[in-house]
Write a protein that binds this DNA or RNA. Structure first.
Lengths: 356, 356
DNA sequence: ACGCGCTCCGTAAACGTTTACGATACTATG
DNA sequence: CATAGTATCGTAAACGTTTACGGAGCGCGT
């Protein structure tokens, strides 16, 4: 039984303690920055820990204190979601982490498998107790997950508002504001028959988007026509399909508002097949800005925002709703819509001449 | 102290045991499917656990058995990576999970913050001991992470081969095979001056890609010209830049091989600005297939593969390298390149007429 | 000399599991 | 009936932390 030699891999705080010839209590206090420990011994402990490569076992720690210092971001990578949303999550993640890291919190992503019920998945993850708090995305119109988390008293914030019972913290892109702005612009250009695309799923953003569209129309005295609300997947194929439906309408719309900018690629393609050119015969406005939109001809009018900053906001909202952290973020609004900036393109830059 | 009434939230296995009036040992054995427990009582235990919503505390469990049943997928969301699509990761994730879930393993994603050194980040995550094994992606040419994990004796597999010392399990797309096939095709069409794009970073796939390109060229007796290897970011902008550089070359190439299919969008745009049309004046071949490629005019010749199946393979490789699971996957090759299938498009479907 | 407060540290009890070990009751076998 | 074997269960010791509690030593004022 060799005892000296190379510093063998640390087994636990116990070995570190007996190597320093002090008690484990003191070692623990030294490592955790507790006040009642001599500065001198703290230095020794930290040095020894560094040298021997000791690092606290997280299981033991979180068993004892019931906390893990990990925040989970649940993402439901449904087939549809996978097709769009490329950099969306990773960009938001960057913003989240920039805040969390200041508090020594780590972020992990919890991807719900396609074939599993998100609610059951979340239950499993909560039961694992590997996260202290959660960020939910892709919120449904009514979302059982919120009620469950509220009942389980685990803090959470949502990326996207919802109608669910509990008042929960969230940030959300300003979907109705965007719809509002787009309609104002299109109406000013002479359009009165304006279609809108919305996701086929129960995700809440679609409802909010259409609601804003409806209110804006009514403000201009234009009746709301359900036939102009086209449900389609948020992908290029979806855009193609939207155009297809548009062309089939009797009183063909002169403008269309897309929930997802990539759809414009498919839409352009389909209408051009029909001899209709975007930006001249039909106005197109897209939600959010993708780098790809810049490569469309004609360039797409859309809305820009910083997803990174949205992540920052979301993290702060979550933390301010957690007792242990809320003093860092004293007066934070717990619900916040995130503004977007209009990026004018050529796709709607024409005045509609009343042709009939 | 009320004792009856609503089933209050379970505190632990102890309460569950005394509610059933049996010992905690038996309860634990019943829940974990151990053999020495009466089928009758097992049923009772499972029923009670279900009814009271009991679920084992993961910290306690993993403290005791030193295992967490969680696999981590580390992703370095570098700025550049974010610009490309993360549906890559989400798709692979689907394949991984379909395997892991059979073994009651959960997958979490560990996104390394932009501003943190991936190596340090990984060290922190390993220290947390929240994962039993790891999957690394975006492997560098030489990657310190592998050595660290090997030394720490934590199992891992990589998405992408590397030159690092240790023989580690990996799957990788068949970059050199693709380069090979593309060159054969282009040469058959009369091209001899063929450019190639490669990432600007130290990620290994670029080296493998160029290596395959080089060997294929030499097989055809075409000298390798370093000037034709263009480093650029894997984005539309990068494609634009590649085209820019191409146009600046004296003896202008008649074909180009792109490491990332989205680059074709920018490349098309730039060459068309110069009056050169893809598929007639210049041949373009892209690596991997994106849905977007279908919307390009002319359609892009590229290579298709199932990233989901690649995930399946990767998961199996990882598990077969773990003592506790390897009997499930007896004779699995621990290193495997993943084949891709050619998807012929119009972008290289012309015979080069020798023009000079 | 005594008591008090302060600083620093050791002791031991939790946290919620799993599991080796032994105990009990019952069955089969001689 | 004695004994061995089997099926089932209870007991208690781990796993590695954190932390409440108390104790030792010291300075200081009375």
């Amino acid at each position: 039984m060799v005892h000296g030699g190379k510093p063998r891999p640390m087994k636990g705080i116990r070995q570190l303690a007996e190597h320093l010839d002090i008690s484990i209590g003191t070692v623990s206090r030294a490592l955790n920055g507790k006040p009642d420990v001599n500065e001198e011994t703290r230095k020794r402990v930290l040095a020894a820990a560094e040298q021997l490569g000791y690092v606290a076992n997280q299981s033991g720690r979180s068993l004892r204190q019931g906390t893990t210092n990990v925040i989970g971001l649940m993402i439901q990578s449904s087939k549809e979601t996978v097709e769009n949303s490329d950099n969306f999550f990773l960009t938001v993640t960057g913003g989240l982490q920039s805040v969390f890291s200041r508090h020594n919190l780590d972020l992990i992503m919890l991807p719900c498998p396609h074939d599993e019920d998100p609610y059951e998945y979340l239950k499993r993850m909560v039961a694992r107790r590997v996260v202290d708090a959660l960020i939910l995305s892709e919120t449904q119109r009514v979302d059982k997950r919120f009620d469950m988390l509220a009942k389980a008293k685990i803090p959470f914030a949502a990326l996207g508002r919802s109608l669910s019972g509990v008042q929960h913290p969230w940030t959300d892109l300003d979907f109705d504001g965007v719809a509002n702005c787009a309609i104002d612009r299109l109406v000013a250009h002479g359009h009165r028959r304006i279609a809108i695309s919305t996701p086929a799923s129960d995700i809440n953003l679609g409802f909010v988007f259409v609601e804003g569209y409806r209110r804006a129309l009514e403000r201009h005295g234009i009746p709301y026509d359900p036939a102009l609300v086209i449900r389609a997947k948020s992908s290029e194929q979806g855009g193609y399909q939207v155009a297809d439906e548009l062309l089939r309408l009797d009183d063909r719309p002169t403008a269309v508002l897309l929930i997802y900018e990539l759809m414009a690629i498919g839409l352009y393609r389909r209408v051009m097949e029909a001899g209709i050119v975007p930006g001249r015969d039909i106005a197109v406005v897209g939600f959010r800005e993708a780098p790809r939109a810049k490569f469309l001809q004609p360039t797409l009018t859309c809305f820009r925002t910083s997803l990174h900053d949205l992540g920052v906001e979301l993290a702060e909202i979550l933390l301010s709703s957690m007792p242990a952290y809320n003093h860092f973020y004293p007066n934070t609004r717990l619900q916040r819509t995130w503004p977007l900036e209009l990026v004018p393109g050529e796709s709607d830059a024409f005045q509609l001449t009343t042709r009939k």
